[in-house]
Every structure is written in structure tokens, then in C-alpha cells.
Design a protein around this nucleic acid. Structure first.
Lengths: 154, 154
DNA sequence: TCTTGTAGTTAGGTAGCCTAACTAATATAT
DNA sequence: ATATATTAGTTAGGCTACCTAACTACAAGA
């Protein structure tokens, strides 16, 4: 996959890799989004439910920071999930900041997340399962690099 | 990165890898989109100009297939790029199918693509440049796997 | 000739993102 | 103690990117 280019550092064709990654990322995100619509829950919704399950009491700004998104956008997502009955606002911490919302999963939200966990066997998993052992291992090994790309401090 | 799970094939935790990839992909696509807006040309636009430069004469359906997108969506993108003066419709092939459009870059479109090629040093490249040699190599090695995920025959 | 299939477009809709502006609460400066 | 600056979250308005249904026109097949 690595193309040696004259005049460039032989191990780092940054622009070349970027040019190859972009179209793949575009298509991948289209597929993920399309498949999520089929499943009936967006990847972000599932992600948010999972985060809040792990860390009950998070607020809008914290979630927005975790997901690299604006606060109004996150506010709207949370509002939707509340209206769906999956998230609730916990009682205020009497000694805490009264502006903050503290989000927790509702019982329905917990059930929804369990159901997702149990039944989710979607397109991405199917595709990953079709990779050769080498391809799978390469992707697995690259996960850290992908994570690094989106780390804060960017 | 690979977590050995009891009772699963030790080299293939498909669900685990999927669960780790999803949030990264979500964030990555947000970043790419946000950064593209900053640059002033979307990744898809640049991609389409590049494809049509390499293969003048492509039609809407072909582009839609290449990008894994619906035809109406592609029709709208192409229309926008035409209105921007970057794409043109070539004269009909007298022996060909009269319904087909045959897209080519306009002179302005060629210039725009050249300018993109010359000046593009954006967020993704910056981030890739910040990876360690190992991380870069791992990502480079995984490109084929990523491509496989979005290959047709899916 | 008629029926079926295909290329592309339009209309209407959803999902996902943003900034600007705002209210309310808190922290900091005077 | 009071005034100012900052922060948490929400609403409004807008843009981008996708979809399906329905349509017109053209082509292929029966």
C-alpha cells in the first residue's frame, strides 16, 4: 500500500495516505449511517447511552466534549433521547452547580441498551468478520492510530 | 489493543473491534466534515473533481455507484458543481444512450482541482504527520482492510 | 408494437451539524 | 457588597448531506 515517492521521506507519505483515507472514510461513514437507520438506532444514540451508563451524572458540555461536538447539538440529541424516554435528569446535587444537568439512563434506556448489546450484529460486524486474519489484525493494530487522529490536543 | 475474551476466537473479537471502531469513526467523520467546511471545499467535491478528471465522461449513476450513494443525491451534488462552474456536460455521443450525461471538468474546475492539490495541507494531514512512525505504518498497513470494509460485494 | 428496464431529475423529508442569541447561575474583580 | 466576566444549557435559524417516491425520457426486450 505504501508507494515510495521520489523526494519524499520514504516512510511518510502523509499527503498520499490522507488522499487514500479520505474516500474510504467518506464511504465508511455513509455505510455506517445507512446501516444505523436500518437498525433503528443511530450510532451516536447508542454511544451516548453507553457513555451515560458508564458515567451516570454527566452533563451536556461534558458529553459534547467527549464527542467533539457543539453544546447546542448535544443538547438537542439529549433532548430527543429524553423525549424517547431513554434518558432522565437526576435530582440536583444540593452542593453543586445548579445550572448543570446530571443525566442518567432511565429503566427503559437501560433495557434499550441491553437489547442493542444483545442483538447488534450489523453491517460493520459482518464486514469485519469477512476480513482475512491478516486484514483483521492490521485493522486491530491500527485502531490506536485512528484514536490518535481524533484525540483532543489537536 | 486486542482484548482476549473468554469463549471467543482469540484472534477475532469482531464485536469488540466494531465497538471500538464506531466511536472513532463518528468522531473522525465529524472532524473531517468540520475541517472541510473550514477549507471551503467538501471532501466529496474534491473527490468528485478528481474522479472526473481521471475518467472524463462519467455519468450520474456511475458516480453514485463509485461513491455508494443514491442517484438523486449524486444528481444534486453534480448540479451544484455545475452551477459553481466546475463541471460541464460534454456533447452527447451520437451513437450512445441519449439519457446519459457525460461529465467533464471545466477549465475552472481543473484550476480548482490544481489549487486544491497544491494548497491542501489540512487537518488530516497535520494529524497524520503527528503520528509516530509505528502508528503511521500501522495505519498505512490497515488501509487495505478499511478499503475492504467498503468494497462492493457487501 | 407494447412492456419492461434504465438514466437522470425533482419534490419532500430526515438526520446531523453549526453559530448567534438568550436565560440563569457562578466566579472574579472592584 | 456590587459590578463584571464567565460558564451551563437552551432555542432559533440556517446549512450540509443523505434518503425514497414519483416523474420524464430513452432504450432494450418480448
Amino acid at each position: 500500500m505504501m508507494i515510495q515517492s521520489e523526494g519524499r521521506c520514504p516512510s511518510r507519505d502523509v499527503a498520499g495516505l490522507a488522499d487514500q483515507l479520505r474516500p474510504v472514510m467518506l464511504k465508511l461513514s455513509r455505510h455506517l449511517r445507512r446501516e444505523a437507520l436500518k437498525v433503528g438506532i443511530s450510532d451516536l444514540d447508542a454511544q451516548l447511552l453507553g457513555i451515560i451508563k458508564r458515567k451516570p451524572g454527566l452533563g451536556i458540555s461534558e458529553l459534547a466534549d467527549i464527542e467533539h461536538m457543539s453544546r447546542p447539538t448535544m443538547s438537542a440529541h439529549v433532548k430527543r433521547l429524553e423525549e424517547a424516554g431513554w434518558l432522565m435528569r437526576e435530582a440536583e446535587d444540593p452542593d453543586g452547580d445548579r445550572r448543570r444537568v446530571r443525566l442518567v439512563l432511565s429503566p427503559e434506556g437501560k433495557r434499550a441498551l441491553e437489547a442493542i448489546r444483545r442483538t447488534r450484529n450489523d453491517w460493520l460486524e459482518a464486514r469485519l468478520g469477512q476480513l482475512s486474519a491478516e486484514e483483521f489484525a492490521a485493522l486491530d493494530a491500527a485502531l490506536g492510530s485512528l484514536v490518535r487522529l481524533v484525540e483532543v490536543r489537536g
